[in-house]
Design a binder for these strands. Sequence first.
DNA 1: TGCTATCCATCGGCAAAACCGATAGATTGG
DNA 2: CCAATCTATCGGTTTTGCCGATGGATAGCA
Lengths: 300, 300
Amino acid sequence: MELRHLRYLVAVAENGSFSAASRRLHVAQSAISEQLANLEQDIGVPLFVRSGRKTALTAAGLTFLEEARHTLSAADRAVDRAQRVHRGQAGTLRIGFFTGGTGVNFPYLIQSFRKQSPDVQLSLVEMTSTQQWIALRDGKIDVGFTRRPEPEFRTDLQSALIQQDPIMAILPKNHPAAPGPIDLRDLAQQRFVLSSREASPAVFDKAIELCSEAGFSPHIASICSVWSSVVLMVQAGEGVSLLPFNEQQFRNRDLAFCPLKAKNASVDFVIAWARRRDTTLVRNFRQLALQHRKSASARG
Amino acid sequence: MELRHLRYLVAVAENGSFSAASRRLHVAQSAISEQLANLEQDIGVPLFVRSGRKTALTAAGLTFLEEARHTLSAADRAVDRAQRVHRGQAGTLRIGFFTGGTGVNFPYLIQSFRKQSPDVQLSLVEMTSTQQWIALRDGKIDVGFTRRPEPEFRTDLQSALIQQDPIMAILPKNHPAAPGPIDLRDLAQQRFVLSSREASPAVFDKAIELCSEAGFSPHIASICSVWSSVVLMVQAGEGVSLLPFNEQQFRNRDLAFCPLKAKNASVDFVIAWARRRDTTLVRNFRQLALQHRKSASARG
DNA sequence: TGCTATCCATCGGCAAAACCGATAGATTGG
DNA sequence: CCAATCTATCGGTTTTGCCGATGGATAGCA
C-alpha cells in the first residue's frame, strides 16, 4: 500500500466516481481502476460497490476513507514540520553557556529571538567552555557561548567573536599593586590561584602566556574548577589570580580587580557552533546574538 | 512522496545506517540511497548528515522521522479498521423497526449481539415497513424488522421469516361476534378502520384479500397511518378492524381481539436487508436474530 | 602512516509496474 | 430501446524501483 492508493481513494470519494476522479487527478480512468483494485486486493477488503452507473463506498470503505484522510494529512504535516524546522521556524535550539559569560544581554536576546521564531523551543544548558565544545561536536547542543575552541576542535567547530574579555588581576583589596593598571612583572613573586585548564584552556593558557611574557613562570598555589572558587581562594589569601572580567565578581567588595598593562591581555568570548550542524535556526540565532553584541558595545 | 520513503527512513533511523536498513529490508543499499535522496529532493529538506562512516539525522530529519512514524501507524490503523469492519468486528449497524413489531426478544438480542461483537456501534431507527424498505435500498439502514418487501423492492432486498403474525379482528368488547374465532363473512356489513396502505401494504392488502375471499369488499370508514390510531378509532365506535396480533394492543380492556377462521390469516414478520450490502456484520446479526426467533418459538 | 573495513553515491541494466488509449460490458435515464 | 455514462480489461509505452558493481570517503587498527 502506498500513499498513491489513498490519494486515489479520497479523490474517488470526493468526486463520486472513478471517472470523475481520473479527470480531477489528470490520470487515466483505467489507472485509477487498476490501482484501487490492487488496493482492495492488497488489504483484502472490498472498498467499493460497483454497479454500472453509480459507485459507492462499502461500510469498510467509508471507515478506510476516514483513516486514509488522517494518514494523508499526517503525511502532509510531516513534510510541513520538516520544512519548518529546516527553515528554522520550528524545532529546538539547545544553547550552552557558563555563568559569568557576558557580552550579550541574555534575557533581551532570548526575548527578541522568541519574537523572531515563536515556534522554536529553547533549551539552556550550563557547561564549561570545554564541555560546550564536546557537546557541540557531539550534537548535544546547537550553539554555545564559550571561549574560542582549541585547535583540536577547529575542524568540527566554528566560532564568531562576541567580545574580548580583558584579563584582570584579582588581588586582595589592600594589595600594593591595586588598583592598577598593573605590570605583571610586579606580581612575579606572588603565588597564583588559577582556574583549571580543563574547564577553560583559553583562560589558563592566556594567564601562563602573560606571565611568560612578563618574564616569569607563575608559582601556582591552587587550581580551581570554577571562577567563583578562584575568587574565594584569593579572598582567603591563597594568592592572586588572573581572570577575565566578569560583572558578577566585580561586585566583590573585598577584592581589587585591576586591569593589566599588557596589550594582549584578553581572551575571546565567542558564539560557537558545529560546522556540520549550521542550520538556519543556528544561523538565525547567531546573527541575532551578533547584532546584540554590536548594540551592546555601542552602548559602552 | 510515498509510504515507501517513510518506511525506508524509519528503517534507516532504527538500524543506524543505509546499509543496515538495506539488509533489514532485503533491498539493495543503492535503492535505499536513491529513494531517500529522492525524498529529500521532493520535500526540499536534507534529512541526513552523511559523513562517510556514520550517518545521522538532521534536526529536520528527526522531526520528520517522528511524523513519519505517525503516518505509518495511521496507515496501518486504516487497514486494520477496514479489515475489522469487513469481518464484522467493528463499525456501525443501523437497525430499522416499528413499535409493536415483536417476534424477537429485542433487549436480549441486542445484549447477545453486544457480547459477540463488542466493538460494533448499534443505531436503532423507528420506521414504518415501507420506510424501512426504502432506507434499506438507499443504504440508510443495514437491517430492518419489517413486513415482507413488496415486489418492487425484491430485486434490491432480501428477507428471512421471523414469524407469522396472525391477523386478528378488532371489535368493540360487546360485539356479538366476539370472542371468535370469527368467520369474516359475519363482518361483511361492518364499517372498517384500516391502517394505511402507505405505511404497511402487506397488512392492508392482506385485509382486503381476506374480505375478498369472504365474498365482500370492505366498506372503509377510516384509514389511519399507525396501528395505535386504528385502535383508538375502533374504541370510538368508528368501525371494526383487521390488524396483526400485537402484544401491546392486546392489553386493551375495552376491545375484543378475535382470531379468524381463515387459514391464511397472517402476515409475515421478517428481518430484511439489502442484497448489495449483505456484509459480515449484517449476516452475523441476522443469524443471531433467527436463532433468537427459534428459541422464542420453542418457548411458545 | 598505510591497510582494511565500512559506509554512501553513482552508474548501467533490467524488470516490475504505473500509466495510457481503446474497447467491451453493464447500467441508468430518457 | 437508445444514448450516455460508468468500470474492467487488454496491449503497448514509459517510468521507476531495484540490483550489482564500482568508486570515493572515512574511521579504526596495525
